[in-house]
């Protein structure tokens, strides 16, 4: 436990001393802020139009602003995840610092958990930092906070799952660009797998659709806390980290 924390802390401080963390925070906030502004502006315009026409159809800030916004958030995660995870092992392999970690009295699984945990913390930090915008909605409106938290949890779980896959891919190469590109490809593939269900209902299509990270985001997106989907994300995390451990072991046997 102590070792996991030591490694996690170093990873985090390395994210913040190199410009990666700041760059991601800035870019994400700018893009998220822009989208936030878009949705809110549209919401206000629609509200004013309705008032002018004298229609009083119900408007819902949760449905019309927060939900699409967090949906976009989960989409933006696809771009953020490879940038966070690509360096985890690839950089250590290139610099030779992996020899320090692998010859220290620390178990492989502690190294892996520490690194993955640091990546997840950074990811959550970026999402939360951008979510400061929501404070304005609570200040000037009256949204329901419970479904919002559930959707946020979905965004975190999806990110953590993709980061576990990214961690595994990072152990395969010492080239960060290759690790990043492969992770991005994997993320995108797990995203588009959900599309098959719209025109095909064969078993294969169902399997592919089940594998997609976005299929399982639906319930979180609607503000429903579904154990089934949470278990999907947790198992992706488990499988990703399991493969990372095997990959590190094979690194020891083969290298």
């Amino acid at each position: 436990m102590r070792n996991i924390w030591i490694i996690c802390r170093r990873e985090l401080s390395s994210y913040f001393t190199s410009p990666i963390a700041w760059l991601l925070l800035t870019m994400y906030s700018v893009i998220f802020g822009f989208i936030f502004w878009n949705f809110v502006a549209e919401f206000i315009k629609q509200g004013m139009e309705m008032e002018m026409m004298g229609q009083a159809s119900p408007m819902n800030i949760n449905e019309q602003v927060i939900r699409p916004l967090l949906g976009t958030s989960s989409f933006l995660g696809l771009f953020v995840v490879p940038l966070i995870s690509m360096r985890l092992f690839a950089e250590e392999k290139r610099n030779g610092t992996i020899e320090l970690l692998a010859t220290s009295p620390v178990r492989d699984i502690e190294i892996i958990l520490g690194k993955w945990f640091a990546a997840t913390v950074l990811y959550c930090w970026i999402i939360l930092y951008a979510s400061i915008s929501f404070v304005f909605l609570f200040r000037f409106g009256n949204p329901d906070w419970k479904p919002m938290l559930v959707t946020l949890l979905g965004v975190f779980l999806q990110g953590a799952a993709l980061l576990a896959i990214g961690t595994f891919i990072s152990t395969l190469t010492k080239n960060q660009i290759i690790a990043g590109a492969l992770t991005f490809g994997a993320c995108l593939l797990l995203w588009v797998f959900s599309w098959v269900s719209s025109y095909d209902s064969s078993t294969w299509a169902q399997v592919m659709s089940y594998m997609s990270v976005i299929t399982h985001f639906d319930s979180f997106d609607r503000g429903v806390l579904s154990t089934k989907d949470a278990i999907y994300y947790l198992s992706v995390i488990f499988v990703g980290l399991f493969f990372t451990a095997r990959s590190m072991e094979s690194l020891r046997w083969r290298s």
């Binding site: 170093r10 390395s14 190199s18 610099n95 030779g96 610092t97």
Partner: peptide, 10 residues
């Protein structure tokens, strides 16, 4: 090791 295992950003 032959190349000192240093984290250059530390």
């Amino acid at each position: 090791p032959e190349a000192p295992p240093l984290y250059l950003e530390m």
